[in-house]
Amino acid sequence: MSAQRATPRHGGGGVQAPAGAARPVPADTALPRAARVLLALVLLAVFGGLALAVLALAQPAPGLAAAVAGRIDDSGVSHPVTAVLLNFRGYDTLLELVVLVLALVGTWSVGRARGCAGNAPGPLLRQLPRLLAPLMVLVAGYLLWAGAHAPGGAFQAGSLLGGVGILLCLSGQPLPGWAQALVLRLAVVLGVAVFAALGAAAALLPGGAPLDWPPAQAKTLILTIELAAMLSIGVVLAALFAGGRP
């Protein structure tokens, strides 16, 4: 993490840094040389086996491209990857958002955020985010919209928003007070909540099933979910960078 650039030896965030911290890092390799050579040979054999497995897969395989192309008109979007992510394999994406929230909960339960407090931004880093952050938010919105018909979507847009958060953190912009407690937590779970609620509502339609979008409303539903997911992904990534509960 480059945030510690200004402090040559950050003492574990001020938490009881023991005297042992000044001890030089022990020899990085725990294995003697002979064992490493043996390991390299074993792994070379493993690579050979894996390569043979890949070569056995060499012949052209149709995969699921035709199946996706056949139902793309019902999916509400025209880009196949977005259709797979948000429609055909919606469970994957829903549970992925759950994984993001769980990772953040785990990080928050380990310690408090050190944020970027130890970072002393230079003049460039203090000023540049003022120009870049609005542009990045704009591009994130474009990526979200473009995801319906071109490469893009909630994850690309969300990671850009996460980048905005990291940039603002590094440039020493404090999180505004209103965003620190409840709003932050709501933003973290927004994606999962909207996705799960709409997915459950789809099951209540006649002949519906969970996460089975009716084709007429699919595009609206997908964009709604992607908007919520983008916000959550951005907030979670930036909060993971901050490294602990606020």
Binding site: L64, V84, L85, T107, S159, V236, L240, F241, G243, G244
Partner: peptide, 25 residues
């Protein structure tokens, strides 16, 4: 190209980043 593996990779990247963040913490 088959879009299903691509979508799975997109999912996997985000999970890998989140897991890395947790591991670093």
């Amino acid at each position: 190209a088959d879009p299903v593996p691509q979508a799975m990779v997109l999912t996997g990247i985000v999970v890998a980043v989140a897991a890395t963040g947790l591991a670093l913490a």
